[in-house]
Amino acid sequence: MAKYLMLKHYTMAPEYMQYTPMEEWTPGEVDAHIGYMNDFAARLKASGEFVDSQALSPEGTFVRFDGEGKPPVTDGPFPETKDLIAGWMVIDVESYDRALELAGELSAAPGAGGEPIREWLELRPFMGVTPSTTD
């Protein structure tokens, strides 16, 4: 089994954001989208592949150490052009192919007109902590 992170973004370069924003959908389409997401997580729990899922607020700041005795430097709130993580799901699956398949399914969540929004998701393998015992 291998763990993967599926990352969702609030904002990306325009060429990656080709769907109608949610506030311009109908309420029924919003419900259908949320329902699809919930069903997806429920199915992964049932198949034993779900690890964690969290959503992040779009509000936040960048912070940096500014030397002993000084308060940390902040730069923010994030300007809208910055690539903003909206949330993630962690899955534990048999293979890379299975991870790709699931990310594809998640990206097919319905949007305006019930059409798949086809949003870009980032799929990242977890690094292990220790070498395997057979190395």
Binding site: M22, E23, P27
Partner: peptide, 10 residues
């Protein structure tokens, strides 16, 4: 809240 926005817009 998103549903409220969608309702008004539609």
């Amino acid at each position: 809240l998103m549903r409220q926005a969608a309702r008004l817009n539609s």
